[in-house]
């Protein structure tokens, strides 16, 4: 039915792709399986890059170069996204009066789908054929570059790769970056990297999974994966309790779980648990009958201050902590 590698249909499924990959331009279009493939015509699933960021930036033409249109295209070069206004010119066609009446403003809102239909006939993509960009001129780092986390274990790297300047009114919040990073040498008091992440059996936030008897049984308790060599330095035994202190002044009490999966300079904790807070079991506060099978400290109690410069997403992977035997 479908070729295992290209996903292309054959026999009864001729003209289709497995799973109708987006974009499917018209009702008879089979879909476009690859982000960029100019060896195939647009009607057959080929495509170039979308014209997304204007026609020109800093004197650079943003449309695709000459001769780089997908196969069988009426226009062999780059072209802008198709609108009611430019369709006749870009596609080199004439619309009837009726079509002119029914056509939508541009390809995105064209409920008549005339733009897409006409494009398919000409072998052209409704969203244009432009250059891809590797530079995001609206971001503080137009090209991604390394910046040390606010709570970095390495002062030398902080100097070399400092974080951003503080950002006022970042989604209505004045957010600290450099001032926090330079407040002190965090790694002195908090020498260990703190990484949090996901457990397979808890897939999401963990709330539903911890309420499932069998899933919860796989990880019945909150734990902290720690390298035995690191644990040894603090007198923490496998299965014993340990405190984790964060630069925020918070702390949690969790069970140590020896693991060689984490190197000696860091600890790892899953983020799915809740019900305990700073060493205190608050699970009696769950409304009657709703207490999950597995409760424990929330790792986010000790994740460090820090927010993404674009999205304000909190920092949960790059923090520091101090540990001690409990």
């Amino acid at each position: 039915m479908f070729d295992q590698i290209s996903g292309r249909g054959y026999g009864e499924m001729k003209g289709e792709y497995y799973g109708l990959p987006w974009p499917v331009w018209t009702e008879t279009h089979g879909g476009s399986p690859l982000l960029y493939n100019i060896n195939r015509s647009v009607a057959e699933g080929g495509m170039g890059f979308r014209n997304r960021f204007g026609l020109e930036h800093d004197g650079q033409d943003l449309l695709a170069g000459a001769g780089s249109a997908p196969k069988d295209s009426a226009n062999k070069d780059g072209y802008p996204e198709i609108t009611a206004k430019n369709i006749e010119e870009v596609l080199g066609i004439k619309l009837t009066a009726d079509e002119k009446k029914r056509i939508g403003k541009n390809w995105k809102v064209d409920t008549s789908n005339i733009i897409a239909e006409k494009c398919m006939q000409q072998g052209m993509a409704p969203y244009g054929n432009a250059k891809a960009r590797a530079k995001v001129w609206t971001f503080p780092d137009q090209i991604p570059m390394h910046r040390e986390p606010i709570h970095s274990p390495r002062q030398d790297l902080v100097k070399q790769y400092p974080t951003y300047e503080d950002k006022r009114d970042h989604y209505r919040v004045d957010t600290q970056y450099a001032s926090k990073q330079n407040e002190q040498d965090w790694s002195k008091d908090f020498p260990i990297n703190l990484v949090t992440g996901r457990l397979v059996n808890m897939n999401g936030a963990g709330m539903e999974n911890r309420a499932s008897k069998y899933l919860a049984a796989l990880t019945p308790e909150m734990f902290c994966s720690i390298n035995p060599d690191l644990a040894g330095k603090y007198g923490i035994r496998d299965g014993s309790m340990m405190w984790i202190h964060s630069p925020e002044g918070t702390k949690i009490k969790v069970k140590a779980k020896y693991s060689f999966s984490v190197p000696e300079d860091r600890i790892f904790m899953p983020f799915h648990f809740a019900g305990h807070f700073q060493g205190e079991d608050l699970s009696h506060k769950y409304p009657k009958g709703t207490k999950p099978y597995a409760v424990g400290e929330s790792a986010n109690t000790v994740t460090n201050y820090g927010y993404d410069i674009i999205t304000q997403i909190p920092e949960t992977k790059g923090g520091l902590c101090r540990i001690e035997f409990a």
Partner: peptide, 10 residues
């Protein structure tokens, strides 16, 4: 080691 088998069984 996704434990899918053991959970499915249980």
């Amino acid at each position: 080691s996704c434990d899918g088998c053991s959970v499915a069984c249980a």
